[in-house]
Design a protein around this nucleic acid. Structure first.
Length: 253
DNA sequence: AAAAAACCCAACCGCGTTCGG
DNA sequence: ACCGAACGCGGTTGGGTTTTT
C-alpha cells in the first residue's frame, strides 16, 4: 500500500552529487531546458531520480542563484516575512531574489529562529548575555518585533492563497467592461470572477497573491500600483500589522 | 591530541496541488 | 468529471565540519 514511488530506486545514485554529475545535468539543461524531470535523468545519462535532479538544479546549479552568507538586509526581510507568512518558504524566497527556499529554510532553522527565541528570552530576562548572530540593529529590531505575538503568522500550513475578497462596490464597475479599457486591464483582474446569488456582499476572485507582495527593503512591503489603480486595496506598509493581527482562519483567503 | 557534542546544509521523503488526456 | 502523472512544497534526516571539553 502507500504512494507509488516517484521512480525506481534500484541502481540509482543517492547522496551527494559528484562534479561530473553536476556537469552532466547542467550541460543537459543548457541545451534542452529544465522540465520533464521524470525522463530527464535517462536522457541526460544520469543515474539519479528525477526529483533529485530537479532539486539539485533548483537549489544549487541554477546560474541565477546567489550562494553564501546572508546580508543583514536579507535577514531582516526573512524575519519580517516569516512573522507575516510563517513557514511559507517558497513565498518568502520569492521576495528574496536569487535565494532558494531550501537555503532560507536552513538559514532560518539554524540561525534566525534561535536569534528570535534568544531575544524573546532576553526580553523576559530568562537568559544572560550571549554573542549575537544578528548583523545589525535593523535585524535586531525585526527579530524583536517578531517576538511580539509570534503565533499570529498567517497560514503556516502549506495552502496556496488564490482568492481575495473584493468589496461589493467594486464589483459592477469591475465586471462592466469600459470601452476604453485595454485587454491588459481585464487580464490583470480576473477572468473567473463570480457573483453570488444574494447579490453579493463580497465576491471571490482568482488571483496570484504574490502580485500583492512587492518587496521594499525599507518597510517590507508596499502596495502594488497596478492593483491600487484598479481600486483594490489589498496591502500597504501600514496595513502589515493590521493584516497580521486581524486575519483568522475564518477569513476567506 | 583525541573524543564528544553541536552545528550546518544538501538531499531525501511524503503529501497536496496542478495539469493534461 | 475523473484519474493518473508530474510538479512543487515543507518537514526531516544524514553525514561532513567545526567547536568544545
Amino acid at each position: 500500500m502507500g504512494r507509488k514511488p516517484c521512480c525506481v530506486k534500484e541502481g540509482l545514485n543517492r547522496g551527494a552529487w559528484s562534479a561530473r554529475e553536476d556537469d552532466m545535468l547542467t550541460n543537459y539543461i543548457k541545451i534542452h531546458g529544465a522540465g520533464k524531470w521524470r525522463d530527464l535523468p535517462q536522457r541526460a545519462g544520469l543515474k539519479r531520480c528525477g526529483k533529485s535532479c530537479r532539486l539539485r538544479w533548483l537549489n544549487y546549479l541554477r546560474p541565477d542563484i546567489k550562494r553564501g552568507n546572508f546580508s543583514a538586509d536579507e535577514e531582516e526581510l526573512i524575519i519580517r516575512l516569516h512573522k507575516l507568512l510563517g513557514n511559507r518558504w517558497s513565498l518568502i524566497a520569492g521576495r528574496l531574489p536569487a535565494r532558494t527556499d531550501n537555503e532560507i529554510k536552513n538559514h532560518w532553522n539554524t540561525n534566525l529562529s534561535k536569534s528570535v527565541l534568544w531575544l524573546r528570552d532576553q526580553l523576559n530576562n530568562k537568559t544572560g548575555p550571549r554573542e549575537g548572530r544578528m548583523k545589525n540593529s535593523a535585524v535586531v529590531a525585526a527579530a524583536a518585533e517578531a517576538t511580539v505575538e509570534p503565533t499570529k503568522a498567517i497560514r503556516t500550513k502549506a495552502v496556496r492563497c488564490t482568492k481575495a475578497v473584493v468589496p461589493a462596490a467594486l464589483q459592477l464597475e469591475r465586471l462592466t467592461p469600459k470601452s476604453d479599457m485595454s485587454t491588459t486591464d481585464h487580464q490583470s483582474i480576473s477572468s473567473s470572477a463570480i457573483i453570488d446569488q444574494d447579490n453579493c456582499i463580497d465576491f471571490l476572485m482568482d488571483l496570484d497573491i504574490s502580485e500583492f507582495l512587492v518587496p521594499d527593503l525599507d518597510m517590507g512591503f508596499c502596495p502594488d500600483q497596478n492593483l491600487e489603480s484598479l481600486g483594490i486595496k489589498i496591502f500597504s506598509s501600514s496595513m502589515e500589522e493590521e493584516f497580521t493581527n486581524n486575519w483568522t482562519d475564518n477569513d476567506v483567503f
